[in-house]
Simulated scan of single mutants.
Amino acid sequence: MSTAEKHPVFAAELKADGTFVPQSNLFTTPFGYKPGEHRPEAGRYRLLWMKACPYAHRAVIVRRLLGLEEVISLGTASHFRTEYGWEFSLDEGGVDPVLGIRYIKEIYDAGDPAYKGRPTVPVIVDTVTGQGANSDYFRLTNYLETVWSPFHKTGAQDLYPQQLRSEIDALNDVIFRDINSGVYKAGFAHSQAAYEQAYDALFSRLDELEQRLAHSRYLFGDFITDSDVRLYTTLVRFDAAYYPVFKTNRNRLTDFPNLWGYTKDLYQIPGFGDTTDLAAIRSSYHASPHLRGFAANPYGIYPLGPEEQDFLAPHRREYLKGGYSR
């Protein structure tokens, strides 16, 4: 039986040659101040996520780093996917307290009743109209960093500095293709060739970044950028989820001295570790019904490690004060 047959939720994203290609986003209208764009407005929008998703997690991290918590509200779905998708079973009465919906699918159905794709997170919803505003996980943090700047807290870090944007964009493309998406390409592949291609690309990029971070505290020097957020959300899930479940098992994260120290460094910064739910990550990837088959885990047993104490250990990266080498 093929992966597509065993896991029909991903069938549309599995190609004939065995490769996994993520689906397109449904809500792509940008945030901005031009006609037809969603105008940033305090209190109007709600960010929906679930804690195990790395793409949703990075939007939550940026929201926190920029001080947008009182500007954009947050709705949290359960990290166990149901047959109807992500459900607000963590909330009283099983519905989101602001939107009054039980499933994120309801936002997708309202946006396009004929939509056949997976209802995904993150998605920002306009609470005035009840309609989905934007689910473009690749660009969402950039919107928060730029057109939402009038609402940033005083002294907020510039995560997307103008003078580095072309370099950040280029690195983000690589991180997304070979690392963020790479672990899924390996895990969801249903041919040996597709798996090996994704596996090789993933570890080649990790090897490169291991060397880059030997001389630079963060990816662009001694300050955090959007690229660090994007890399972090995959790395912090690596040993708990991708290494065992998606067979990305050449090395653990802890086998990379620089990447491991870098991840611990970020974890210990407010906005990173305090938005990372390791228990949700472990249980979701191992015990969720839609992923259980990938882990050969029919009884839904999930591991207890790694734990928070592992990420709170000394990282010893303070001495790296210089910039990176171009």
Rank of each mutant, 00 (worst) to 15 (best):
G67H: 05
L68N: 00
L68C: 01
E69K: 13
E69G: 02
I72S: 06
I72V: 15
S73L: 10
L74T: 13
G75N: 10
S78F: 12
F80E: 10
R81W: 14
E83H: 11
E83R: 08
Y84K: 14
Y84M: 12
E87N: 15
E87I: 13
E87T: 08
S89Y: 11
S89V: 11
S89Q: 09
L90R: 15
L90P: 07
L90G: 14
E92N: 09
E92W: 15
G93R: 03
G93T: 02
G94E: 07
G94M: 07
V95F: 08
D96L: 10
D96H: 07
V98G: 08
L99V: 04
G100L: 09
I101A: 11
I101E: 11
K105D: 13
K105H: 13
I107V: 14
Y108T: 05
Y108G: 03
D109F: 09
A110K: 06
A110I: 11
G111A: 06
D112A: 08
K116T: 14
R118H: 10
R118Y: 06
P119R: 12
P119D: 15
T120K: 00
T120C: 09
T120R: 04
V121Y: 13
V121P: 08
V121I: 12
T127I: 12
V128L: 09
T129Q: 02
G132E: 06
G132H: 03
A133V: 08
N134K: 12
S135Y: 14
D136T: 07
D136Q: 06
R139W: 15
R139M: 11
T141K: 07
T141H: 07
L144D: 00
E145I: 08
E145H: 14
T146P: 01
V147Y: 00
W148M: 00
W148F: 03
F151L: 02
H152F: 02
A156T: 03
A156I: 00
